[in-house]
Design a protein around this nucleic acid. Sequence first.
DNA 1: CATAATTTTCATTAAATACTGAAAATACAG
DNA 2: CTGTATTTTCAGTATTTAATGAAAATTATG
Lengths: 176, 176
Amino acid sequence: MKIMKVETNRLGQAKDEFIAQWGALGTQWGISRTMAQIHALLMISPRAMCTDEVMEELAASRGNAHSNLKELVNWGLVRMIVIKGDRRDFYEAEKDVWQIFTIIARERKRREIEPALSLLNKCAEETKDLRSAEAKAFHNQVKQLEEFVGFASKMSDRISSMKHGLALQLATKILS
Amino acid sequence: MKIMKVETNRLGQAKDEFIAQWGALGTQWGISRTMAQIHALLMISPRAMCTDEVMEELAASRGNAHSNLKELVNWGLVRMIVIKGDRRDFYEAEKDVWQIFTIIARERKRREIEPALSLLNKCAEETKDLRSAEAKAFHNQVKQLEEFVGFASKMSDRISSMKHGLALQLATKILS
DNA sequence: CATAATTTTCATTAAATACTGAAAATACAG
DNA sequence: CTGTATTTTCAGTATTTAATGAAAATTATG
């Protein structure tokens, strides 16, 4: 085993724990454990990594590493990097927290809010001219949900498109 | 088959679609399909329902209906109701959208934000006095995440504890 | 107390999701 | 073109999560 300072070892342990736990959290957030682990690994890596390094670090299969890297690039949380004179693809994570937040917010809106909103639109529309008391009650409830979710959708857009500084300013006002 | 007005049938179809689709959405939100379906069913039901009615409406098993009803009561999205002269337990959903929102926000914070925050706290703490450049970079990245997530946590609390009207006022300001 | 209605539990089964590893496809260098 | 490094795909397997249904426990009723 390589000789190393106690400090280096402590750092390694902290990193490993971070990666392992971030992976576990990922499953709570609806993304696969490996995807969250790769994200954690790259967020704290001082340099871009290639597929084999990721595989080794996480003891994951090639297919798994590959598809999750692709997915992360898709989300925009990770960028592919070309290093000249090297045929391999390298990957590095977006590290700015506000960027990370807006990317995740956009994705969640797309997956969680928009489909709900379109369902609510449809149900409200389909029942808007029914006259029975029961139908009116249904229409009313759906309408309330529709308005709220529509609101949430707009809010999400607005906040995501803010500059970090401006958002911070707004947040400070709310927290004060 | 029972004779019914066209209107009644249209309403029934809209309800069925709403329940089915809300269930499908539930899986995106990290809750089981049945739980989301029961929630939808009760949100649009004009009266409280007993376990057997829920089972029948959703073609779900007793155990499934039971455990998901229990879970919904646990969240606070559904209340158990006692009807005198009837031994069965009845259930009714919270219908106020702002209430629904705050309940879900609280639960999500508990499951998604708090564990992340405690991990970040721990990792920042464990590396705060390491001096290598690599350690400092790690500590710095974790710290940034910690600050942001801590911020999000406070925001979530603040907004959830607002009265609907006040939140609306705030939102209007942001959207304007 | 006996019994009937209802709720609760839980071992088993089914369904959904994530991962593996090897083979096929692609890209590049000589 | 040929051989090699690398990426991509995907059928098969493993893991995780949700649902079933029947049995046990509980609760009310006469």
